[in-house]
């Protein structure tokens, strides 16, 4: 920003030309500021999704699809276990962990038995179906249809040994932390889930 605007104007001695020049400077700065803040009221949200369990896959997708229904620009950046949500095969088999979850109706000693994650997952899937709650696959397809940008972190794709073809069609790949930060800096709402 120019420092001219901060300079005091000696109104008693300033010529009309000086005042006009000063006004023009101020108007130019005002136009720049208006341009900088003018986003047509368009809201945006960036979510960082880091978890790949069945229960933690829902919140980012529910918020993303709902925000898209509001007409917001939405980016969900999936990293580490969050990648499993975008993985076409794995997303249909996300598991719920019974261990360390005080909301589960069983003590940890029992929850830690080898088959209990499958039991807990089956119970949850049954409730999801009975309640008319959308599946993860439906929410992903819906979100993509509504223009949500579902991004898969390139570094973790390679770390986990995934192939880009294994993700849903329409998922953005080849993006990293800098892209995520850029979206977060511009967004009205930023969430890490």
């Amino acid at each position: 920003m120019s420092s001219n605007a901060d300079a005091p104007v000696e109104t008693a001695t300033a010529s009309v030309e000086d005042l006009q020049a000063h006004v023009e400077t101020l108007e130019a700065e005002l136009a720049d500021l208006r341009e900088a803040v003018d986003d047509d009221g368009q809201k945006s949200m960036t979510i960082i999704a880091t978890k790949g369990t069945l229960d933690m896959a829902y919140p980012p997708l529910i918020l993303a699809s709902t925000a898209a229904a509001f007409g917001w620009d939405v980016v969900v950046f999936h990293t580490f276990w969050g990648l499993e949500i975008l993985h076409e095969e794995k997303s249909k088999n996300l598991k719920l962990s019974a261990v360390g979850n005080p909301s589960m109706p069983m003590p940890n000693a029992i929850a830690a038995l080898p088959f209990m994650d499958n039991v807990a997952t089956s119970m949850m899937e049954k409730k999801i179906a009975e309640n008319g709650t959308a599946t993860i696959e439906e929410l992903i397809e819906t979100s993509l249809d509504m223009g949500v940008d579902l991004q898969a972190c390139q570094m973790t794709i390679e770390l986990m040994g995934y192939d880009e073809d294994e993700f849903y069609d329409g998922v953005t790949t080849g993006v990293g932390a800098a892209t995520a930060l850029q979206h977060m800096a511009d967004a009205d709402v930023q969430l890490m889930i």
Binding site: I62, S65, T66, A68, A69, N131, G132, T133, A134, L139, T142, M146
Partner: peptide, 13 residues
């Protein structure tokens, strides 16, 4: 029969 977020999402469409 549909629950959150589908009523809003389908209404938008």
């Amino acid at each position: 029969g549909l629950s959150c977020p589908m009523p809003v999402v389908k209404t938008r469409g």
